[in-house]
Nucleic acid binder design. Structure first.
Lengths: 217, 217
DNA sequence: TTTTATTTGTACGATAGCGTTCATTTTGTT
DNA sequence: AACAAAATGAACGCTATCGTACAAATAAAA
């Protein structure tokens, strides 16, 4: 759902279009929270960025916590829609995994995602529910999709695994290595498309090798 | 360096032992920062926890930023000393790697480390230098140690790799998978020693398999 | 045009934290 | 005992932010 999609609804009764403002506020809030973290971000700065009065924010959102929660929810919904491990029937497992690896990298290495993860972890102590929300919409979903994919391949006899969940996690681990950690702490990577391909291939080759063995102790 | 080590020095001239207070302040600050994050932690709460007056803190540390920096530095120094990949001459590479994997898990899964990483990433935007400091003392050092170890094994002909750094990162990725991420967002794992062993073995087996092949494309 | 919901700007109260000042007290040294 | 460094507590100025109140303005609907 793009910002534009939200703006289409017209207010039911007088006054300026309110749906649009909500979207503006959420966008502004996201930017402020991403840049300053929860407690340093201020409602007034958000209002200014959204070109909206502070009162309007309080008329739409209960308080700062609520606003932050909404931002995270929105982001999670966005995340859920944009990362899908596809099972392309006609492709080989190798090709599917290669594609998944590239998708994973592109998705997790976006500047947006890095900034999101930076601030979100810090709020887990204050509000553990927010950590669960993120896990359910991001990492767990990703791993589950991957697991499903792998189970199909196992049924087909293409690969072996005695612990599919562990195998899925291994795949993610092989692909990302410590990259997400480095990025989170400000290390610049700027992988070219070719380098990403190379990394994906290395991970897929390694993973396939492990899972084409006869036994997994 | 333990807290006790710091307290051994006696003040050069009159007044209560000041070195001990510095250690107390740092310990208290660490706890407060870990629990509340940088901006929500307050100097007064730190003072109270350290059983020290606020003025004492300001007489020893320039300001809040400085105090936070000192806490991070202390933590980094601690980190540097406590995680070492040892190259035990008489052991097999498999055993060394198994040991390294267990060490890595124990080290990175400590509650302390999880809390540290939660709040640190959030401050990277505000102060990128702090991210670099952490990377240099933690992840980069770990990977470098691992890389050195692997290079020795390559010379001995025990394994093959055309990109040792990538191989070291793969190892870390295989061992940790997405565990550190899950922990950071509040997912409880509580791996038993046996489960850790199992995970370590799986990672080492997989990694060895990949690196005992003839060629690495 | 009138009505009605919504938005706005400004002002406000309340709270809270940073960093400082200063007179006083504590504590180790000489 | 006298001294000097260090620590204390309480108060202060300052700034910032949250969340609210209210009267005026705006824009869509009737």
């Amino acid at each position: 759902m793009t910002d534009a999609d939200i703006n289409q609804s017209h207010s039911l009764a007088g006054g300026p279009a309110s749906q649009r403002k909500i979207a503006d506020i959420l966008a502004a809030a996201r930017e402020e929270f991403y840049t300053n973290g929860f407690s340093s971000a201020t409602i007034e700065a958000i209002a200014a960025r959204a070109q909206v009065s502070k009162v309007t924010i309080y008329s739409r959102f209960k308080d700062k916590d609520n606003l932050f929660g909404q931002v995270v929810s929105t982001e999670c919904a966005h995340m859920r829609k944009n990362f899908v491990v596809e099972n392309l029937e006609d492709k080989s497992l190798r090709d599917i995994l290669q594609q998944a690896a590239l998708g994973m990298m592109d998705f997790l290495m976006r500047e947006e995602m890095i900034r999101f993860e930076r601030i979100l972890a810090a709020e887990v102590t204050r509000d553990p529910g927010i950590g669960e929300l993120f896990l359910d919409n991001g990492p767990r979903r990703l791993l589950q999709d991957l697991t499903n994919l792998l189970e199909l391949s196992i049924e087909k006899g293409e690969i072996q695994s005695d612990d599919v969940k562990a195998s899925a996690e291994m795949f993610a681990g092989l692909v990302m290595g410590r990259m997400d950690l480095f990025l989170r702490y400000g290390h610049k990577m700027n992988l070219s498309a070719a380098e990403k391909q190379k990394r994906a291939k290395r991970a897929v080759d390694g993973w396939m090798l492990i899972h084409q063995q006869r036994s997994q102790p």
